[in-house]
Amino acid sequence: MLSLAVKAGLALLAMGQQQAAVVDPAWVRVRSSVVRIDAVGQNPGLGVLIDSRGYFLTHKDSTNIRPLMGRYGDNQAVLLTVVAVDDQTQLALLRAENWVSTGQGGVQVAAKTAPGAPLLAVTAVGPVKGEFVSDEKVGQMRPSLRYAPLSEIRLESNVVPIGGALVFDAQGALVGVLGATLSSNNQTSSPGKAVAAQKSTLASADSVELTGKRSQYGPQGMTVAYSLGPAVLDRVVKGFLSPEHKVKHPSVGLFFKASAEPGALIEEVLAGGAASLAGIQPGDIVKEADGQVIHNPVEFAIALFNHNVGDKIVLKIKRQGEESEVSVIVGTQD
């Protein structure tokens, strides 16, 4: 009797899904590049193919499972091994064992996404529609305290575990890997914004499917999520695909904050770092970087981020009332 009732419920569920099953065009483009990393007792992870040699990008949290097995939507399995982990961005590079290249190069990183553009977030329990808000968010990553440009994304659901979700634009380019969500006490609950976001996401496409299951849609809530901005995501992917599989984030070995006057007050200088070798001391105030006036620590962080490892950056330093210029060779965080 119970089994009959369950079967009837499942049949009704399947009927409802079939009626609303209109495949999202973005999903059609990326479905053959996305694998689900299954795990018992915890939320599954996701990986996306980024290179024809069988390299997958995933969130670090998805790599603590053994054996690391990825499954495509058609249940085809692929054994994965961890090649590299970037602690700064919490992203990881996986390699498929016994990979037979089919010429498929995987997805590309989206260069630029316009605010308001519809997105598809592929979560472990199904796709969720979303909207791109901005790629100009200033992020500070804990515990490293490093600056990172962030993209803000709004999702049409607040019930799905979205940590590590892959976000694609309508063309199937990778916009980001969701790494953070805005705390509930900080949720922007502006009714106007929420309604606008719902309208845009509802109008974008009818429905999507992932292995026959869909997440809950509707006005039950919005989730504000963040992923790394396109610049840093591109840097991570290029670093991972380099011969040494290593991401080189620029660093000069400084910790700084707002000062009483325009500039960035140096709080700490890491011993042996590039800034230390250049003679910069705690208490110095960075007034300019490469001729650009630094008004606050955010501007200095962005100026540093925009350099590559090996670049020379000229800083105008104010120390005990006197200004001087020093040249610093940008190094890595190691």
């Binding site: 968010k137 790494g179 953070a180 969500t181 705390s183 900080n186 009483a260 606050n296 955010v298």
Partner: peptide, 26 residues
């Protein structure tokens, strides 16, 4: 000196139990 500084998103190293992602604060 911070008058022109943009709003910042602090990404903590604690995970949100609802979303499984790190908690962020503006």
């Amino acid at each position: 000196s911070l008058a022109g500084a943009p709003a910042m998103v602090v990404v903590t190293d604690t995970k949100s139990p609802e979303t499984g992602a790190a908690s962020a604060k503006e």
